[in-house]
Design a protein around this nucleic acid. Sequence first.
DNA 1: CCAATACATGAATGTGTGCTCACATATAAA
DNA 2: TTTATATGTGAGCACACATTCATGTATTGG
Lengths: 128, 128
Amino acid sequence: MYWDIKMIKVEKDKRAVCEVLCINERKVASARQAMKPDATLFKLAASFKVLGDPTRTKIISALLQEELCVCDLASLIGISQSAISHQLRVLRNMNLVKYRKDGRIAYYSLDDDHISFILMAGLKHVEE
Amino acid sequence: MYWDIKMIKVEKDKRAVCEVLCINERKVASARQAMKPDATLFKLAASFKVLGDPTRTKIISALLQEELCVCDLASLIGISQSAISHQLRVLRNMNLVKYRKDGRIAYYSLDDDHISFILMAGLKHVEE
DNA sequence: CCAATACATGAATGTGTGCTCACATATAAA
DNA sequence: TTTATATGTGAGCACACATTCATGTATTGG
């Protein structure tokens, strides 16, 4: 038998991030091992962050149905064309949307099948 | 036969949000009808936004395995206890985590089964 | 009761970001 | 070619937000 919870007193440096540590070392080690690498979690957060803006969420939601041009998106969402363009660039940089040019018109659509999957998963949480 | 694309010239008010509208009315109307209500999309964006911070993503990821107390989370993620507490409050307010108190120690765990589902969906996009 | 511990929280601060504005670019019509 | 249209983009601003710092609260041990 052993104590699962270990108390460690750290030297009394006022500037230490945390003066006192009450670590369950076994659980922390286990969790650390099971966790995805930092870089992966960082990219994951970045993806969610992009989806975490109402304007961009609406853009993605609109594109679930069919491709739309920039001014259609602007009209549909009720925001300026410039704002839409800026947000479309963000979505493009994250490979969430792609576009095709037909003359002057740019038709945007979803780039990845995962996106709609993620959106549906989120909706399940919201619509309960 | 009819023109699918309709050009509408709006009065030349310099302050108008959009001087010119090139709306495919049929597609816009169709997309508008298919889209979830604004309130739903707003809540959806709010949920993604909460997941869109690296610290919070790490917290959720750590809690996928088992419940952890505040200082274990702080140690695991490598951030101050205060910062963890602030972020845990955010996650609590969005009903993403819950906690139980055992004496002075607060053990946090995921509140909703959907969360891990959403996280997995996001990971599929990131890890391709 | 008193001191220490585990966590919560308000204020302050530095950073990030979504929008507007102005302008640039590219294509099409005249 | 000239003009209008459809979209892209840099700068600037107002606001949101993640962290730190200081302190408050609740529970335990002595």
